[in-house]
Amino acid sequence: MGMTATETRSTEPQIGRRRFLAWLSGLGIAGSAALGSLATFFFIRPRTTYGQPNRFKIGRPDEFPSGSRIAIDPKRVCIVREGNKVAAISTTCTHLGCIIAPSATGFQCPCHGSRFDVDGNVTGGPAPKALAWYAVTLTPSGELEVDKDNEIQTGTYLSV
């Protein structure tokens, strides 16, 4: 009599426990799969790249005469010098990544016809945003260094 009552009571939580454990196992497997995917994601996202460094020296300030706009295609920057002010403007088109070239009115992209003014603002074509300006610093050795990981505001020059 008493046994039956105990059994009835104990049956219910047993099913609950089974289901709980099943859910827990399922959660564990799903969690492991998620963590595995995350690990794979971190694995295939490179921590170091083998291409060009994003920080590089470009030479002494006097190699860039005042009023010059010298594009360094391999580095994909254009060095602009006005008086004693120096800046580095990206020459990677913000549209689809083609190399743009300095033109009489600013910059021109050969791929889809985007045009930019001398400060890199879009004046025509499909480019969605202005060209990036990169931080330029003067190293202790007296050389200019461009840091492409450090985008700065348009119109920010370094005085040399």
């Binding site: 490179p46 790249t49 083998y50 291409g51 994003n54 990544g97």
Partner: peptide
């Protein structure tokens, strides 16, 4: 695998 199209 890099900022631009290359070996990677």
């Amino acid at each position: 695998g890099d900022a631009t199209v290359g070996q990677e």
